[in-house]
Structure formats: C-alpha cells, structure tokens
Amino acid sequence: METLVAFTVGVMAAGSVYLLLSHNLVRVLFGLILLSNAANFVIFAAGGMTEGLPPLIGLGEKALTGVYSNPLPQALILTAIVISFGLLAFALVLVYRGYQELGTVDSDRMRLAEPPHPDQDIPEPEEPGRLHVRDASRRVENLGSPQS
C-alpha cells in the first residue's frame, strides 16, 4: 500500500513541477494545488498505513487495544487541507485580480515591480475584463513595439 502511495506522490509531484515551471499563472496555481495534495499523501503514508482497523474504542473498553491505524496523520492532513484551501483560494483571487489589472496571466510579462529597463513603461490593456489570455498577451506585445 505504501509503495502505491509513494508512486502516486511521485507522479503528482512530477506533474506539479511541470505545471509550476509554466509561464501561465493559472497552470502554476494548478501545480500548487497538485503539490499540496501530494504533501497530504506524504503525511498519510509517513504516518503508517493499516487497512480496515479504525481507531475506535470498543463498547465497554477504556482504551484502544491491539493494532489500530494511527489517527494523528489524518488530523494533520485535515489541518493542512483547510490551510491550503484558504491560501490557494486567496492565490486564485490574487491571480484573477492581477489578470484584471495587468491584462495578462503570463508571469514573464509581469515586469511592473521589476522593470527590465529603468525607463520602460508597461502598456496597459484598455478593457482588461473582456480580454482572453492570448489576446491580452498579444496586445501587450504589440504596444511594446510602436513600429508595428
């Protein structure tokens, strides 16, 4: 069982790294979601896996007896899920707001905070709300070179 989970984590991590390396921030977000779920699986596997032995105290007994699955990793995962849900929801809104204001979800075009050349201004889209990703990036590109 652990081996299976380990390979699942490996595949998820590989997929998330592929997504994280993208220019497209939406893909980066998906990469983060995938990575945080992979982390949850790691907790699950690291805590030791036992099948079909819930940590329930039997009727009339005072404590757990015999072999039972470890409940702590599940508590940790639950906490981690809640936290990463909050953070990722915020990140999603942040990227969307960034898209509205900057007109792009391409991280390579977001050079406002760190301009490539000191005096260069980044052109602004006119109706950012209505642009598609590709249109937005193309428009920025066109405005960047006044000759075209």
Binding site: L32, A91, M110, R111
Partner: peptide
C-alpha cells in the same frame, strides 16, 4: 499585485 503574485507563488 505584480509583487504579491510572485511572493505568493
């Protein structure tokens, strides 16, 4: 927003 996106990621 530009800075925050990079910081967050």
């Amino acid at each position: 927003l530009d800075g925050a996106i990079k910081y967050a990621a």
